[in-house]
């Protein structure tokens, strides 16, 4: 068999394998993608909450995308405390001003950034939240101060539709 012939055969087999592999990949993708959030789940991205009944010093918990969102109406003392913390004392430095644009209202995802438990309200060494699973302490701005959690509790996208209604998402 001449060398040229061998090359052509190699090319034919390589091309067949390559085209076949593309097809296998294209077939597998739908089987994987079907587990991603479907169109109806994606459509439920926002929820509106009436906060007129929340008094200062109280927290309500609402469900958003299957997860708890803490909405706390903070007292003046709490705001002062949250804003006085020095950034260098923080494990994950973030200003309270950036976390709560309207200082009276703290809206955050009530999910510990360690392994996903829901922290307890007004517990822990920093007077904020305390996660019972592995002992992470958060301050009144939801920032991690002590324990295994790596980052502050997440602030979701939200806006005040009017003075009494918050739209999350």
């Amino acid at each position: 068999m001449s060398e040229k012939k061998t090359n052509r055969r190699d090319f034919l087999f390589t091309a067949t394998y390559a085209v076949g592999a593309v097809g296998v990949g294209a077939t597998i993708w739908p089987m994987i993608d079907q587990m991603n959030p479907d169109a109806s789940v994606k459509a439920l991205a926002s929820t509106e909450v009436d906060v007129s009944a929340v008094n200062p010093g109280k927290t309500i918990t609402v469900l958003w995308r299957g997860k708890p969102v803490f909405i706390r109406r903070r007292t003046q003392d709490e705001i002062a405390e949250a804003r006085s913390v020095k950034l260098e004392d923080l494990k994950h430095p973030e200003k309270d001003e950036d976390r709560a644009a309207n200082p009276e209202w703290l809206v955050m995802l009530g999910v510990c950034t360690h392994l996903g438990c829901v922290p307890l309200d007004q517990k822990g060494e920093y007077n904020g939240w305390f996660c019972p699973c592995h002992g992470s302490h958060y301050d009144i701005s939801g920032r991690i101060r002590k324990g295994p959690a790596p980052t502050n509790m997440e602030i979701p996208k939200y806006e005040f539709v009017n003075a009494n209604t918050i739209k999350i998402g």
Partner: peptide, 11 residues
């Protein structure tokens, strides 16, 4: 795609 692959496999 299937037709192309079929031709390749045929040869």
């Amino acid at each position: 795609y299937l037709i192309i692959l079929t031709i390749l496999v045929y040869f």
